[in-house]
Write a protein that binds this DNA or RNA. Structure first.
Length: 272
DNA sequence: ACTGGCTCCTGAGGGC
DNA sequence: TGCCCTCAGGAGCCAG
């Protein structure tokens, strides 16, 4: 599932070929994504040069001067780079064709992804306006978290996945970071001490960095820009391991549902 | 102000 | 073999 590491791996894979290239065409085969792809988007981007590809949380931001093409991979989306556009498979919804040759293809079985246009302006796009700090930014810190979580009774895991507190952390990495930090996912967020939040911040960064280094996590659909799967799924210690022995202590990994999300934890390594 | 629940969508897997 | 149910999950949205 595309969380921050998968989006970042995709971004890095696209950079060398796409940045500096001109858009020859944008072909939309199915506009029914999370929000409809704007009808005039192909005309809007045609002939324009990609100056940069940035990432904010799980959003990819293709910069055209001061205008931005916002792309989200949703749950099952991928962007892959091809020298020439290959035959279309089921669920191939958008092609970004580069004038120097090369095609970036958007594939997304569940169509939870998005292609949106945000022209230059003073206001941030509504989807980006309320996002919290990047996990590797110093603004993501125990003191800030302590403040934001004060008095909150929701599960720490649920809030760790709330993009207003920190971006990029989804179900897999929330579970893995909490395991490493020794914190139970169901613990009320407001009751986690600053010292433990300190550890959590460190573990979030550690898990994300390791996953980026392995090209992300591939459970089913995700592939990087070169079509290659990630490798972090072999490193998970609790995610998807309910009923199996903990890799650290041997206790049986348990599962609990928090905010409609499956959440795995080790009852021995994560005491509270 | 929070919190939990619903929703979009497709495909896989389990039970019978 | 086939049908139906549940689950997977990013994140907006809404009701209480």
């Amino acid at each position: 599932m595309p969380e921050l590491p998968e989006v970042e791996a995709t971004r890095r894979g696209l950079l060398p070929t796409v940045v500096g290239a001109k858009v020859a065409a944008l072909n939309v085969y199915d506009a029914r994504l999370r929000w409809p792809v704007p009808r005039d988007l192909p005309r809007t981007v045609a002939g324009r040069r990609v100056d940069a590809i940035d990432r904010r949380g799980k959003y990819l931001l293709f910069r055209f001067g001061k205008d931005t093409l916002i792309v989200h991979l949703g749950m099952t989306g991928s962007l892959t780079l091809h020298a020439a556009a290959p035959a279309r498979r089921k669920h191939d919804h958008v092609d970004l064709v580069l004038s120097g040759g090369g095609t970036v293809r958007f594939h997304d079985p569940r169509r939870f992804g998005a292609f949106l246009w945000h022209p230059a302006g003073e206001t941030a796009h509504p989807l980006l306006a309320d996002l919290g700090p990047e996990p590797f930014d110093p603004a993501f810190c125990a003191a800030g978290l302590k403040d934001a979580l004060r008095g909150r009774r929701a599960a720490i895991k649920t809030l760790l996945m709330d993009a207003r507190l920190v971006v990029g952390v989804g179900n897999i990495y929330a579970a893995e970071a909490l395991f490493r930090a020794g914190i139970r996912p169901a613990t009320a967020a407001g009751r986690v001490s600053t010292a433990r939040l300190e550890r959590l911040v460190h573990c979030v960064r550690e898990v994300l960095a390791e996953s980026i280094a392995r090209g992300g996590t591939t459970l089913r659909d995700y592939v990087g820009a070169g079509g290659e799967p990630g490798g972090f799924q072999h490193e998970t210690r609790v995610y998807g391991r309910e009923g199996l022995p903990c890799r650290v202590c041997g206790a049986t990994i348990r599962g609990v549902r928090l905010g409609q999300r499956a959440s795995a934890y080790c009852p021995n390594c994560q005491k509270r």
